[in-house]
Structures are given as C-alpha cells and as structure tokens.
Design a protein around this nucleic acid. Structure first.
Lengths: 154, 154
DNA sequence: TACTGATAGTCAGCATACTGAGCAATATCG
DNA sequence: CGATATTGCTCAGTATGCTGACTATCAGTA
C-alpha cells in the first residue's frame, strides 16, 4: 500500500498545517492577531481599492461564502470598511482603513519571516523549485476547486 | 511587495485546497462519502490495530482535539470501533470493522486516482521532485505545529 | 416591457484545525 | 506511600472551507 509520505494530498495538508502555524507564531510574536486568510484579504483590498467581495474572492481563490466571514472580522477589527456600491446595489465595495494600512505595514516583517521559516529545511534553490512546482500544479488544477483563482475583470 | 504567487504559505493553501477538492470528487464519484482526513485515519487504524487516539494522531499529524471528532464520525458510520483499553483506563483502543475494511478496499482506486489528478500539471519526474521537497520542508518544520508527526512507540 | 437567466451576497449546516481548559487515570519521585 | 507531574481524552469557543439554498438585483432578450 502507498505510504502517507508518498501521497501528495497528505504532504499538502501537512505543509499547509506547518505554514499556518508558523505564520500565526511569527505574527503573534510581533504583537498582532491576524490569520493568513485575513492578511491575504487585507493586502488584496489595499492593492485594489473599492473592489467587491466576489472579485476579492477570485483574486485569492477563496470561496465566496468564506469571504463573508473573513470580511466581517476585518471590519469588526476596524481594518477594513464595507459599503454599498453606487453602481450595483447587490455589491459591497471594500476599502482599507488607516488602521488597516498601519497594521499591514507593521506586520510585513513578520509575514516575510514566516515565509522563510516554513522553507528553512530547503536551500534557496530548492525553495524556488518548490514554489515553481506548486505554481505549476496549482495552475493545472485551478478549475478543480469551487474557488478557482480569477483575474481582475476591468 | 511580494506577490501571492511568491508566498509559499499561499501556494500551500491553494495546493491543499485543490487536493481536497479532487479527493472528494473522486471518492464521491466512486460512491463513497469519506473525507481525506477520515480516509487517512481509517487506513492507519487498519495498519495498527488496537492503537489509541493519541498514537493515531501522532502517526498522521493531527491535533488530538481533532481526532475526537474524526473518530466519532468513523464510528458513527460503522467503519471503526472505539473501546476502553484494558491496560489504561484513560485510553480508547481503536479497531477497524469489517465494513471499514470493505470500504477501504473499494475506495483505493479512487484515492490513487485523486493523487494522480492533483499532480496532472507535472511530469512524473516533477511530481517526484515536488514530493521530495515537500517531505524535506515538512521534516524541518515538524515541531512547529501543535500536531507534529510521531513514530510508533512500542 | 415582461420574462428569463445570471450574479452578489448571505445563511444554515457540516467537517477540519486550532487554543485553552478541565477531568480522570497513570507515572514518577521523594 | 503520598505528593506531584504527566498523560489520554473531551469540551467550549473560534476560524477556515465547503455544499446547497435563498433573496435581491441586474442583464439580456423576446
């Protein structure tokens, strides 16, 4: 029988588990309380002011039902704002707050450090190669999950 | 700023997301209702009859608080049994049922197929290399999560 | 314009995962 | 032996992620 260590699915889960733990540890030590998902959402909102939730979900490959809760928590923490879109009354436009900008700026070193720690067993070249292979596998499987990555439309 | 696609943490989340979706799709098409986590637990119980929950958790790197629910559902589906250990009254010994054995046997082709599909963007050599790099990164980060991989004690 | 279909967002329900706390039982050591 | 520490398990609470359903709104078309 195939061993766990020969199962890409098992290795994926394990690597992600470590990645999240490292992220939370680094960010927590820096004095912040932000999850990987919240960080990605906030950074994307900052880079695309006024985007709606579906677009945000597509840009970071979240399910749209997950985004609701994530944005709820960003708003609740005062890092982002959600307001009705003037052009489409179904949509909510998202904006980062000054406090959100401040947190993003201060948190960046911890996030960078986390990315390094989760690759600490690999050489620089191996780390690059791992990322390349992950990107390639992800690109081929993009449409297989309910929350595929999507480009900006306009 | 570092792009999402240059963040190993983001790539890890995305790859795992696809891996789970592929697993559920393949297994579902084969007519079974088993999650990746439940599958790993059941296979490990079969390979190590009579093991307790903490040992099971260590062998597949789950948090012990997660195992409780997973085993609950395996028991509820009639695939595994949980009984008090005669040697340690705190511990529960786990055993696979005949139905569990039958399901494992029948489900194997779908699981195998899923492992291939999630690597379909890569050549055979690239798939091997990806798994090697993941194993190496995981080994170096094993102690960084609350649920590290553990060997059998006995 | 009225109908039809698609879209944005939310919600209920379920299954991982984690933190932190607690209980019962076992191990260890003075 | 008795106090202390450790261990196996569970639980409450929170945060992803998913399925499926629903409402409100918009877009396209007959």
């Amino acid at each position: 029988m195939r061993d766990n260590n020969d199962m890409p699915g098992h290795l994926a889960r394990r690597f992600q588990q470590i990645a999240v733990a490292v992220f939370l540890a680094e960010v927590g030590e820096a004095g912040f309380d932000l999850t990987p998902v919240q960080y990605a959402a906030l950074a994307t909102i900052k880079a695309n002011p006024g985007l709606d939730q579906v677009t945000l979900a597509g840009l970071i490959a979240y399910d749209r039902t997950t985004i609701t809760g994530v944005v709820d928590r960003l708003v609740q923490k005062g890092l982002a704002e959600r307001r009705a879109s003037p052009r489409d009354r179904r949509a909510r436009e998202l904006e980062i707050t000054d406090e959100g900008r401040r947190v993003l700026r201060k948190i960046t070193p911890a996030v960078e450090s986390a990315q390094q720690i989760m690759l600490r067993g690999l050489s620089a070249r191996e780390g690059e190669e791992l990322m390349r292979l992950l990107r390639k596998a992800i690109a081929a499987g993009n449409e297989l999950s309910r929350a595929p990555l999507r480009d900006m439309q306009a």
